[in-house]
Design a protein around this nucleic acid. Sequence first.
DNA 1: TGTAAATATATCGCGTGCGATTTATATTGA
DNA 2: TCAATATAAATCGCACGCGATATATTTACA
Lengths: 152, 152
Amino acid sequence: MHGTETDIPDDIALNDMICFAVYSAGHAFNRVYKPLLDRLGLTYPQFLTMIALWNEDDQTVGSLGTKLSLESSTLTPLLKRLEGMGHIERHRDKADERQVLVKLTSQGRSLKGKAEDIPGCIIAATGMPVGDLIRLQREIMTLRRSLEQYAA
Amino acid sequence: MHGTETDIPDDIALNDMICFAVYSAGHAFNRVYKPLLDRLGLTYPQFLTMIALWNEDDQTVGSLGTKLSLESSTLTPLLKRLEGMGHIERHRDKADERQVLVKLTSQGRSLKGKAEDIPGCIIAATGMPVGDLIRLQREIMTLRRSLEQYAA
DNA sequence: TGTAAATATATCGCGTGCGATTTATATTGA
DNA sequence: TCAATATAAATCGCACGCGATATATTTACA
């Protein structure tokens, strides 16, 4: 019995698994983003990092990690690449030398302008009304919170 | 204006973006799966591949790639690792030597038994009623299909 | 005060994931 | 038939993503 409202399927089928739906939808998003982000010279995680900085400049690596749910082992090399491209600067915090502060350069700030049409493209790509999209987005964030709570 | 039903936000905010919701929910699933799959000695993509084979043995690399939305450049090394563990065998198709057929070994088949409690754990981790989960899963698959269509 | 514990970031190894290319085989059509 | 084209996997380079560990700095507290 598959797909009924109350039973857990006896056989595991990829297309009935919510984790696989999320996994493959993530890949699908990446494929839509790829040509849009190529114009900016950014990867998708780099783009997310820039968004976090456009919203709040001068953050520590840890603060970015919390917002993006990424470890320093992922962020440090990524930030070094953004620094190499000239979009950000990294400096140890004078008040607490353990921390590294990440700041946008003027180049990094101005990149935001080139990204302005991207959200509209993504919304178009989903083929869904914005209201449905917002509702779905909130449900997935709720799911994420439950999973994080369970994993912790 | 954020979060209204009709407007595209002026400022891009991570927590309002459906792509980020999907991206971070995917990571959250991975963190929940990690301890469960460690018992099987599998990674999450390896687990998905085994599920595809438990449902239909003796598939080509291309068929697995279609079902998992993965390229041969991802699958080939992954399948070699599964082969190295003794879960599968890979042989060129006699009828069409371009294709490689992937078959479960008896060890690979019996691994399914050790995975039987995993779906229940995942459902518990989501903290959602199964009915809601199925509905959400279908909505995300619909989203995925739209994105794939747009990317193509 | 001075040492143990905690905190923040960086480094390393391994497994994805994909675009671009290569190699081998099969199909097509002049 | 046989050369051009198409198809299927594999290979390579690069960028995540994380667990485990290392390093540096700060905090706690005996």
